[in-house]
Design a protein around this nucleic acid. Structure first.
Length: 427
RNA sequence: GGAGGCGUGGCAGAGCGGUUGAAUGCACCGGUCUUGAAAACCGGCAACGUCGCAAGGCGUUCGUGAGUUCGAAUCUCACCGCCUCCGCCA
């Protein structure tokens, strides 16, 4: 959520910032609502003040045993006007809130211009693509030949975009998650968390999935009429830990790592990446989250991105680091780096991690604040990034570590998690 | 699932329907004292919203939401959460 003060005082700057995203905004309705709000709110507060004063007076008169009837008559006249004003104000505030809640974050000054992914800028590249003296297979062919990826079973059990893993590939998948968790907790100072996978609407609002992107979520209706949502990323439960809290600034940053399944309905992406496990309704991800003091969040973004990169480097997977352009960023982000891993069968790079600084955007929605010693509370900053998407990392390992005979070498750093297995062989 | 109890400020803990946004203690901040620190003493210390150049004013908030009332932390109802006991259970 943008700071409503910014909308009031610098509407042109907001419109300019949003235009960089390609999110044209008409602030006229906002300004009209604001004008009404100001008038109605002032009037309401005046009436309330009057009522309070008279009520206090009644109390005092009664204490002295004096006649109260005249004052009672006076205050009685306020009732209807006050009630009407309060109701009108509540409607206006709700409308304003709905309007502001749907405005995306402003891109940071360093974010490159651009409308879509073609405007993204490569800022770094690590390693080299593996050289094959044969035509590399994609992970679908490899995984099926190894007997470990069963797409048909996933479809039978649940439907399209669900996959079943078996045997050594299921183990490799688990090994990847373990390796990531261990690296981030032991080497990067993150605290491991286990969280709920079903969250309430307030949490989804806090990180920005609601109210605008409900169709991307899986929703669970309960018999009492309430609803929960399956998390699309651990960002949601983890970031919402600080919702409604005031934290001591000196105790920041908080650094959390969390391995969860992620559930996405992928509405609007029909026909996209239908082959294989690149785009699934359910996938595992190891997520990094930082709760940072405002003045430290930009450094934190570089560090956090580096932590995600470490995983790719230890796995010796070739990747590039992209600065997303304004038009390609997510709703809540002020700046995002995507890490794209090399997939030889597709002869291309695919997103495997997305690392963002949200500045105070989520914190304002969550009312998450920090306080310096003796100071006033102010919104803190939140960040997160995949470290990494486990399913896509599995895909990358299979495709980059394949050999001509269809076997797949287990990366060095994973062997300890694989009971010493050095390669997966077709059965 | 059954029975009972409880939800107040960063924490602990008071609070007859009426000058209570809320006693008191701890924590925290400032000061006196001290070579320094501690102790003691004095003072300050909720959040949010809104109006205002500012000083400051006003409003809202005692789990959440409705209601009764001129006036609700205090009364009524519903919901949420927590605790204790019983039952069941991965």
């Amino acid at each position: 959520m943008l700071d409503i003060q910014l909308l009031r005082t610098q509407p042109d700057a907001v419109a300019t910032g949003l235009a960089r995203r390609g999110a044209a905004i008409d602030l006229a309705p906002f300004e009209a609502l604001e004008a009404q709000r100001k008038q109605v709110q002032t009037q309401t507060q005046e009436l309330q003040a009057k009522r309070n004063a008279l009520s206090k007076q009644i109390g005092m008169l009664k204490g002295k045993g004096e006649d109260v009837a005249p004052v009672m008559a006076e205050v009685a006249g306020l009732g209807d006007a006050l009630k009407a004003n309060e109701e009108k104000l509540a409607v206006l505030l709700a409308e304003l809130d709905a309007f502001v809640s749907r405005i995306p974050n402003l891109p940071h000054a360093s974010v490159p211009a651009g409308r879509d992914e073609t405007g993204n800028v490569e800022v770094a590249r690590w390693g080299t693509p593996p050289a094959f003296d044969f035509a590399p297979k994609d992970h679908v062919d490899l995984g099926e030949a190894l007997g470990g990826l069963d797409f048909a079973a996933g479809v039978k059990i649940s439907g399209s975009r669900f996959t079943l893993m078996r045997g050594e590939i299921a183990r490799l998948h688990r090994a990847l998650a373990q390796f990531m968790l261990d690296t981030h907790t032991r080497e990067h100072g993150y605290t491991e968390l286990y969280t709920p996978y079903l969250v309430n609407p307030d949490s989804m609002f806090g990180t920005g999935q609601l109210p605008k992107f409900e169709e991307d979520l899986f929703r669970v209706e309960r018999s009492d009429g309430s609803r929960l949502y399956l998390i699309p990323t651990a960002e949601v439960p983890v970031t919402n830990i600080v919702r409604g809290e005031i934290l001591e600034t000196e105790k920041l940053p908080l650094k959390f790592v969390c391995h969860t399944p992620c559930f996405r309905s992928e509405a609007g992406s029909y026909g996209k990446d239908t082959r294989g496990m690149i785009r699934q309704h359910q996938f595992d991800k190891v997520e990094l989250v930082q709760i940072a003091p405002p003045e430290a969040s930009w450094d934190a973004l570089e560090q956090l991105t580096g932590h995600a990169e470490t995983i790719l480097q230890k796995l010796n997977l070739h990747y590039r680091k992209m600065a997303l352009c304004a038009g390609d960023m997510g709703f809540s982000a002020a700046k995002t780096y995507d890490l794209e891993v090399w997939l030889p069968a597709q002869n291309t790079y695919r997103e495997i991690s997305s690392c963002s600084n949200f500045e105070a955007f989520q914190a304002r929605r969550m009312q998450a604040r920090c306080r310096d010693k003796g100071g006033k509370p102010r919104p803190l900053h939140t960040l997160n990034g995949s470290g990494l998407a486990v399913g896509r990392t599995l895909v990358a390992v299979l495709e980059n570590y394949q050999r001509a005979d269809g076997t797949v070498v287990v990366p060095e750093v994973l062997r300890g998690y694989m009971g010493g297995v050095e390669a997966l062989a077709p059965r």
